[in-house]
Structures are given as C-alpha cells and as structure tokens.
Amino acid sequence: MNGNKRVVITGATGQLGQALKERAEGIPGFEFIFLDRQELPLENLEQVVRSLKSLQPHVLINTAAYTAVDLAEVEIELAERVNHLAVREMAAYAAQYDCKFMSISTDYVFDGSSSFPLDENQPTAPVNVYGRSKLNGEKAAFEVNAQSIIIRTSWVYSPFGKNFVNTMLQLMRTKDEISVVSDQHGSPTNAFDLADLLLNIIEKDLWIPGIYHYSNEGEASWFDFAIAIRQLTQLDCKVLPVNSDAFPTKAKRPKNSLLDKSKIKSTFDITIPHWKESLTKMLEQYPEL
C-alpha cells in the first residue's frame, strides 16, 4: 500500500461517486478504491462484510443508496436492506477494525412542514419509505459506531446520470413549454461541492463525529431552479409554475427541506458557495452548451 491511506468509496457510478472520482485524482498520500453496485451489492450484507475485510480500508465513505423514492413504497424490504441494514454493517465493520466511516443521508428524514431552515437538532419525521429507510440507517450507524459522520444533503445534481438539471436540459431542448413544481422549497447541491467537502475532511483528518447538513447556500423552489437553468443556458422554452398536486406521485415529498448549514461551516471551517454560483460553474462543463 506504500504507506498510503486506503479510502474505499461505495456508489462509484452515482453522482457523488463520480464527482469524488474526478476530484480524488492525484491527491497524495491516499489510495482510492471505488466500488459500484456489481462489485459491492449492498443488499447482500454478507458480501459487504467480506469485501471490507478483504480491502481493509482506513476510511470508508458510503455514497451508495437505494434512491428510487416512489419505487421504495413497494420495494420496502430492499430499500431497508440498502439504506439501513447495509449502513449498519459498514458502520459496525468500521468500529471493529479502526476504520473511519462516513455516510451520506438526505433531507427526506424530515416531514417538510417547517417554515425555516432545518438544523441537525430538528425532530425527524419522514413522510415516505425512502426517508424512513435513510433515517433508520443513520440511527443504526450511531448505535454500532459512535465515531460515524453522517452528512444529510438535498437536491444533488451533476453532469452524470439522472437528476433535475439533466432532465430540465433535455425537456427544454425538446419542448416549447414545461410546468415545474413551485411549492417545494430547498437548496440544490452541486455534487462536486459535496465531493470537495468529503475529501477535505479526510485530507485534513478533521474527524469530528456527528450528523451534519450540507447543501449549497440560498433557497429555491424547483421552479426557481428551472428558471435559473433556462436563463444560464439561454434555451427558448417557457417555464410555468404549478403546485405539486399537478404531479401526483406514489411517495409524498417534503414541502420544505431547506437545511441549516451553520454546524458544518463552523466545525470544518468551510465556505459554501451559493447554489446559483455552483450551477453556473457546472453548466460550463457541458460541452454542448
């Protein structure tokens, strides 16, 4: 291992996993191993433990999750295995083998009824199976490993895979008019900003256990987010605001999931960019724009 610290990262093909892969290149003193769902199927709990024992990481970052929010209402057991039981196994492994464990969670642990930004002490009350499975994973991690770091985030986007920005770009290129929900509020999160934070924590060895909230600064509705995408890309598509009732979904969504980032900013001494600034930066990476 040449004296390098081995960092194992799950969810290699996810948005955050791919952002971490790009950002981790060339960081001295670390050996990064990225595992996708074929290499580490989180629903297979025995294999999770076997793989970790074989790899012997110094740091384990879990960015993988079951994220099909509506499908989770049906695939309850699978969502629990991936988002709860696998997290418990990873945290327990880390506690037993002197490995640092970090896992990504979600704003969906809240019911969304609040009118103010939510800090880490606000009571949790998930309104869907996905949110409940992620909250169960948080609790399980701390039950078996008090040194865990859990970071809740929201509205993650990147150039990779399926997310709101990529969906909007596709729709705005192919339609004259679209409708976007205007009564759900939060803050978008550029996956690269979150990746930079995680790497900063492990590079500086700032291991301060606990739950933290991270998203970009500022507040937006999905409609505001869509308008910003349209303005920045200068695409010629009319964007209309609608209530979420116009798009009925199997799983209920929180109406307000704005996160208070005071704790993470003071603990790790970081500055978080505004969501519009980060969106502008990321859209510059799209060669076709």
Rank of each mutant, 00 (worst) to 15 (best):
I201S: 00
W222E: 06
L71Q: 14
K238R: 11
G26W: 08
S262M: 03
W155F: 15
D107Q: 05
I264G: 01
L198W: 00
I211D: 05
Q170W: 09
F164W: 02
V127M: 11
E120Q: 15
L206I: 05
P273W: 03
N121A: 09
E89S: 14
S179R: 14
F32C: 04
D36V: 11
I178F: 10
F32G: 02
S113E: 11
F30K: 03
L52E: 06
V127Q: 12
D196N: 14
S133K: 06
P248I: 10
A141M: 04
T249L: 12
D119T: 08
A86M: 05
D205T: 07
A95D: 04
I208D: 07
I270T: 04
L78Q: 09
G17A: 08
I201V: 13
F164P: 01
Y93R: 08
F116D: 04
C237H: 02
L135E: 11
P188Y: 10
D98R: 12
I227R: 05
L235E: 03
N145W: 04
S215K: 07
I178N: 09
Y286T: 01
N2E: 13
I270P: 00
K21E: 09
E73P: 01
V59R: 01
G210D: 11
L40Y: 05
S105N: 13
L171M: 12
Q285I: 03
D245R: 12
L206M: 10
N256A: 08
S215V: 12
L258V: 13
I201A: 00
N163I: 04
S133P: 05
L85Y: 14
S133V: 06
T280S: 13
L289N: 12
R50W: 07
L259A: 04
L232G: 01
L240S: 03
M282W: 02
N216S: 06
I149L: 01
P188K: 06
L289I: 15
R253S: 08
V82N: 03
T63H: 01
G210L: 10
N256S: 14
I149W: 01
K263M: 08
M172L: 10
T124F: 15
L197C: 00
V156H: 00
M172A: 03
L118W: 11
E39K: 13
T280A: 12
K263P: 03
V181H: 06
V239S: 01
H185L: 14
K261D: 05
V7A: 06
S244C: 10
L235T: 01
I149H: 00
P41M: 10
Q38E: 07
K162N: 13
C99Q: 00
D36W: 13
I33D: 07
L279E: 03
V87E: 09
I76L: 08
R173K: 15
I33V: 15
D245L: 12
G112K: 11
E219Q: 13
L55T: 02
D70G: 02
I229T: 04
V165I: 11
K53Y: 14
F30Y: 15
G112M: 12
